[in-house]
Design a binder for these strands. Structure first.
Lengths: 222, 222
DNA sequence: TCATTCAGGTGTACTTTTTACACTTCTAAC
DNA sequence: GTTAGAAGTGTAAAAAGTACACCTGAATGA
C-alpha cells in the first residue's frame, strides 16, 4: 500500500525531551534505537505524525508507546528541518519538551519501552541524528524560562519542602542560591500554601510541607 | 506525476509574518489569495516546502516569490498542525516572523506580488485559515521579546535618532515612555554609537544621529 | 527679523527590587 | 547527651527603576 500526492512531501515527526531530576541531577529520557539508521545509538523518543493527528497528540502518543509515560505537560520547543538531518529522507521534526516530577515515573515495560532509560544531561552518550542539538536547545530554554515562568514547579509534587524547591532551581541554574532570598522569592510568587504537615525522618529539623495554591494556573505568573 | 510513500504524510508549509512600522503604526504584510480555499481573503505569505529545502530557506523563497522582499532577518515563531486548519488536507505550518526597517521596502511587482499589501496590525481584514491566530502569537512574542532582546533595532536603519528608536518601543508596547529614562536605558545597552551627524530639516532642534556599534551581534545583549 | 512652534537634550530625588550575610531551632544518629 | 545536619528567620546596603521640568536650537511664518 502506498500514499500518493501531486507534489513531494517531507516526512513529519515529533520528538520529545522528557526531563526530570534524579539524584540531584537534571536527567533526560532516551531510548535505544533498534533499527537503522543509528542502530544502537540512543535517541529522543518520537515518531511519525499520523493522518489528521495534532502535533501534541502525536508527541503524547509516541511517548506512551515508547516509554509508557502518559499525561505529562508538554511545551513546543522548536521545529528542525535542515536537509540531511536524517540520512534516509527529508524529515521535519517538531520537538517538544516535557517536565516530570522527580523520581515519580516508573518506566512501564511496554513493547517498545524496554530500552528506555534515564541519563544525566551532563553525561550523555553520543546521540542519533541531531538529537544533541535538540537537547542543547531544550536545556537552554529550560534555564531561560526558569526566570520568567513557573516551570520549576513541574518538577515537584504537592507536599514539597522549600528546600526541595530550592534545589530544583539550583540544579537547573547550576549555582547555589541564598536560602533566605529564595524563600522571600517564593513567597512573593504567591503560588504556594502551607500544607499543614511536616516532613520528618531525614536528618535535621523537620521541614514544613507546601503545596500549590492554584495548581491549574501554573504559568507566566511573573 | 505523483509522489508515493509507504505511509501517509501531511503537507508542510512555512508562513511568514513580516512586520514593519508605517505612519507610526505596527503593520504586517499580507497577500490576497487568488485561489480556493479562502479565495479573495488576505493571508500571510508562505507556501509548501520543497524537497530537501531548509525551513528558513523555504520561508525566504516564498517571501521573495510572493512579495519581492529579500534578505530579511527571520525568527521561527511556532509550528501549527491542528487538523482542520486547512479544509483540504492536513497541513503543518512552520510560522516565522520577520522585522524590516520602517518605510524601507518597496514591494516589487513580481508575478505573485501584485496583491501584497501592508495592513495596520490593529485594523486587519478577516484572514484566511488560522492566520489571525498566528499573528496574535507573533505580536505577543514581539512585545515580550522587546524587553529582553534587542529586536527593536531590526525596525530601524543606521543613522537613526534616539527619538525614532524610542518611538519604535512606544509603538510596540503601546504606551508612552519617559524620554530621559529611555535615553539612559539605550546608553546602558552599549549598542549604539554617535554617527557624528545631525538630522536637520524637520521642525524642532536638530537631532543627533546614532548607529549600531556592532551590527552583527544584535541579540540577547540583555 | 522677531516670535512662535516643536522636537532635542539634560540631572536629581525617591521608590522598589535585589543582594549579601549569621545565628538559633529542631530532629535523628551515634 | 553530644554531634551532625537541614530548617527557619531579618536587616542593611546596593542597584535598578521611576517620576519629574526646564532650557536649546532649528524651522516656520507673521
Amino acid at each position: 500500500m502506498s500514499f500518493c500526492y501531486a507534489y513531494p512531501r517531507p516526512a513529519v515527526t515529533t520528538d520529545i525531551a522528557v526531563f526530570t531530576i534524579r539524584n540531584q541531577r537534571l536527567s533526560v529520557l532516551l531510548i535505544e534505537r533498534g533499527g537503522d539508521p543509528f542502530c544502537g545509538y540512543w535517541a529522543l523518543p518520537g515518531g511519525f505524525v499520523e493522518p489528521d493527528e495534532a502535533l501534541e497528540t502525536c508527541a503524547l502518543r509516541e511517548l506512551e508507546e515508547e516509554t509508557g509515560i502518559t499525561g505529562v505537560w508538554l511545551e513546543q520547543l522548536y521545529t528542525f528541518g535542515t536537509p540531511g538531518r536524517d540520512p534516509r529522507q527529508h524529515v521535519i521534526t517538531v520537538a517538544y519538551f516535557a517536565l516530570v516530577p522527580m523520581e515519580s515515573l516508573v518506566l512501564k515495560a511496554g513493547s517498545d519501552a524496554n530500552d528506555a532509560q534515564w541519563f544525566y544531561i551532563d553525561d550523555l552518550p553520543k546521540l542519533a541524528f541531531d538529537h544533541q542539538d535538540i537537547l542543547d536547545l531544550a536545556r537552554h530554554r529550560l534555564r531561560a524560562k526558569l526566570d520568567y515562568s513557573t516551570l520549576a514547579f513541574r518538577f515537584i509534587r504537592d507536599n514539597f519542602t522549600l528546600g526541595e524547591l530550592q534545589s530544583v532551581y539550583e540544579i537547573i541554574r547550576g549555582e547555589a542560591l541564598d536560602k533566605r532570598n529564595f524563600r522571600k522569592f517564593v513567597k512573593s510568587l504567591g503560588l504556594v500554601e502551607d500544607a499543614g504537615y511536616f516532613k520528618q525522618g531525614g536528618p535535621g529539623k523537620a521541614a514544613r510541607l507546601y503545596r500549590l495554591a492554584c495548581p491549574d494556573q501554573l504559568y507566566y505568573t511573573r
